[in-house]
Write a protein that binds this DNA or RNA. Structure first.
Length: 259
DNA sequence: ACGCATGATTGGGC
DNA sequence: GCCCAATCATGCGT
């Protein structure tokens, strides 16, 4: 582990309730691929973890490379600084040790005293490192929110995808709750993820029932479409019914309109 | 620039 | 774990 590799020789005595803040920072940096091994898929893993719900559109490679580039910048700075600190710490330690050695000619210097001095130095430097970690974490968080927050990268679904979803929605208007299998099928047809299908239906249901009149036209269009599909499949290619519109079922999502 | 449409997230209930 | 409701942040037409 990089963390205080050269420094943590023997700080097992006293001190150090393992600062939960520091642990959090370390974990975060590790998860983000900043503190990990040089070239592993750390960053990619972090990205996929961050987008677990929702999923990514297939064209996200551009944003990804941009994100990865910025992240590796942060990572480089982080490692450079960390190394600088470690080196400074090591230098300072040897410097102090030399001083003590010189002093040992004129007075007795116990190993215990040396250890204590070293521990003090290390604590000082590790607090600086904590600051570095903190600011690095902040930078990563900002980067993350700028690039990875899906809301910032929203793209509308394709016309065709919306078509498919709407077709299902309006043809199941009395119970617009697709099963898991149905969702998977729709996802495949639309080229989106299952969670995106779920999101879409969640949004659609709530927005439909919130303002039915606004969706009436759309409902008619899709109802007609599916009706035509059905009659065509049954082999009778003339108009569905006398009214021109198949009967719509605008019930069930909205239980009742109590005045 | 503004407003509405739309996909994603959050928080609360079951 | 899914749903609803509210909310966020962006897309897009004006």
């Amino acid at each position: 582990m990089i963390v205080v590799s050269g420094l943590s020789m023997r700080n097992t005595q006293e001190e150090e309730p393992p600062d939960p803040q520091l642990v959090r920072l370390d974990n975060m940096l590790l998860a983000e691929g900043v503190a990990g091994p040089e070239k592993g898929g750390g960053a990619a893993a972090a990205v996929s973890a961050a987008t677990s719900s929702g999923g990514m559109s297939p064209d996200s490679s551009l944003e990804h490379s941009d994100y990865k580039q910025k992240l590796s910048q942060i990572r480089t700075i982080y490692h450079t600084e960390l190394e600088k600190y470690e080196q400074a710490c090591a230098e300072f330690t040897t410097h102090v040790m030399n001083l003590l050695r010189e002093q040992s000619r004129t007075r007795p210097v116990s190993p215990r005293e040396i250890e204590r001095m070293v521990a003090i130095i290390h604590r000082k430097f590790s607090s600086i490192q904590t600051q570095l970690k903190q600011s690095t974490c902040e930078a990563v968080m900002i980067l993350r929110s700028r690039f990875l927050d899906a809301r910032r990268k929203r793209r509308n679904f394709s016309k065709q995808a919306t078509e498919v979803l709407n077709e299902y929605f309006y043809s199941h208007l009395s119970n617009p709750y697709p099963s898991e299998e149905a969702k998977e099928e729709l996802a495949k047809q639309c080229g989106i993820t299952v969670s995106q299908v779920s999101n879409w239906f969640g949004n659609k249901r709530i927005r439909y029932k919130k303002n039915i009149s606004k969706f009436q036209e759309e409902a008619n269009i899709y109802a007609m479409k599916t009706a035509m599909g059905a009659t065509q499949r049954e082999g009778s290619p003339h108009t569905p019914n006398s009214t021109g519109y198949p009967a719509l079922q605008t019930d069930s999502i909205v239980p009742e309109r109590a005045g």
